[in-house]
Design a protein around this nucleic acid. Structure first.
Lengths: 155, 155
DNA sequence: CTGATATAGTTGCGTCCGCAATCATTTCGA
DNA sequence: TCGAAATGATTGCGGACGCAACTATATCAG
């Protein structure tokens, strides 16, 4: 009874799997804590500002934001509620589609993003990118792309 | 104004970073959904059963479980509450330390684990391990270990 | 031995999120 | 053109979690 079932993972496989969970958790916790501490901004809020700042025309549809942030529709509605209450973003009706809304940065939101962005990117570098060799960065990119390629459940 | 600040991430770096977030999110969502659908068990609940099933003596302290699951102390208390209500685990006082509790599997919990484990491991294989080459598994393990090595905030 | 401090776990409270239901608007078929 | 179905977003509701405060037990200094 010392060995597991036939599908059990080998130590190397386990390290690749559990390690990803642990590293991901720690990375996000640290980046979120730093962003919150230095700019009073949770990571998800930062991401909204960032996508809006980079968007053509300076605005994005709610659903588009939800997709990019990996959030549900209701999740993005409430996140936008909070950001609007903080005066960082606004929402206005889409002229082509009366159902849709555009989210956009307010001047305050623009300022907040300008202040937070360098700090956050530096954090990503410090905690993640700088600890990887160039070929490892390459390989990771290839792995994620492969994993994300199949739309439905894989074989 | 078309280029970003000096700390901006190169496309390769961005792919390595964002890809991890996206792949992690999709992987966990799928594994959790499969486990829930086939065995009525969220991933965190499964992990409790698994650690208890593998533990020496068949029991673990609450705090030890919290650390392994990357949960807070209150989080593990409530998760244990739920599992106990479902009849899958029990809690008894630790004989050496009147403050501590041992969590342990009930017979029902043992059965549930036996049923769910092969399915979950197969899922990890199908969605993750089987899509990686042996040397990629090796390299991922090395990367995670390196990232997790430094206890405090890295340089 | 006793009081101060540390540790294990739980509970109150607030936050964030997803699902299902809902409302408004658009699109499509007949 | 009109009703049916689809789509974008919001709201009600409940689940899961963390932080801070709390209880109970253990440990340690003197």
């Amino acid at each position: 009874m010392s060995t597991q079932s036939p599908t059990a993972l080998a130590p190397r496989e386990l390290a690749a799997w559990k390690g990803m969970l642990a590293a991901h958790s720690r990375l996000l916790a640290r980046l979120d804590a730093e962003l919150e501490r230095d700019h009073g901004l949770p990571l998800t809020s930062y991401e909204v500002l960032m996508y809006l700042g980079d968007a053509d025309g300076g605005h994005l549809r709610m659903g588009e934001l939800a997709d990019r942030l990996l959030l549900s529709r209701s999740g993005i509605t409430r996140l936008a509620d909070r950001l609007e209450r903080q005066g960082l973003i606004g929402r206005r009706r889409c002229e082509n589609d009366g159902r849709g809304l555009y989210a956009y940065l307010t001047p305050a939101g623009r300022d907040k993003l300008a202040a937070a962005r360098p700090a956050h990117l530096a954090g990503v570098r410090r905690h993640f990118i700088s600890r990887l060799a160039p070929d490892e960065i390459e390989e990771l990119g290839a792995i994620w792309q492969r994993l994300l390629a199949d739309e439905a459940a894989p074989a």
